[in-house]
Simulated assay, not measured.
Amino acid sequence: MSRSRLLEILGRRTSDEPEFEAAVLASDDPKLHAELARQQIVLGGALGNAINVIGPELVVLGGFLGTLLAWDAPALEAAVAARTLPVAWEGTRIRAAALRRDRLLIGAAELAFSQILRDPASFGSTPSMVE
């Protein structure tokens, strides 16, 4: 799977996630569609192996993998199901990460509040700078 290959077909050097997904979903380029289908098959094999071994109830796809799901969710699910043992696949759901484009902002906020998140009881126990 290669985001850069998809960008190349779209004629872009870079793109943020919302722009990338919008461009993929709006395109009617047969070359792009063939590459998306190929990447879904590759992802289906990787996910099928992981589901067979781990047996998760939920698989969350972030970044451009979420775009592969958004492009044709039934095709991706079929690619996964074809490579997964029925007993392991039963009840498994595949979803795009909810944070998607905000994941870096959330990570930065976590870093800024890491002390509070690590030890909530310590919050408020340090002297205030404004008195």
Rank of each mutant, 00 (worst) to 15 (best):
E21S: 13
R5I: 04
G11L: 06
L105A: 14
D29V: 10
M129I: 06
L58W: 12
I54S: 06
A34G: 06
S122V: 09
I94Y: 08
L69E: 06
D102Q: 13
A96Y: 03
T92V: 15
E19L: 13
L99C: 02
L6Q: 03
E77H: 13
S122G: 12
K31M: 07
A46W: 03
V80D: 03
L6S: 08
D29W: 00
L10F: 12
E17Y: 14
T84V: 09
A88D: 03
D28V: 04
S27D: 01
G45P: 00
T67Q: 09
A82H: 07
G45I: 06
S122Y: 09
S2T: 10
R95N: 06
F123Q: 13
P127G: 06
M129L: 14
T14Q: 15
D29E: 07
P86T: 05
A50E: 00
E19M: 06
L65Q: 13
L111E: 06
A22N: 04
L47A: 07
V42Y: 11
W71C: 02
Q39I: 02
F113G: 01
L117S: 10
Q115Y: 07
E110Q: 14
L36W: 00
S15W: 00
D72P: 09
D16T: 10
I116A: 14
V59Q: 08
L105D: 15
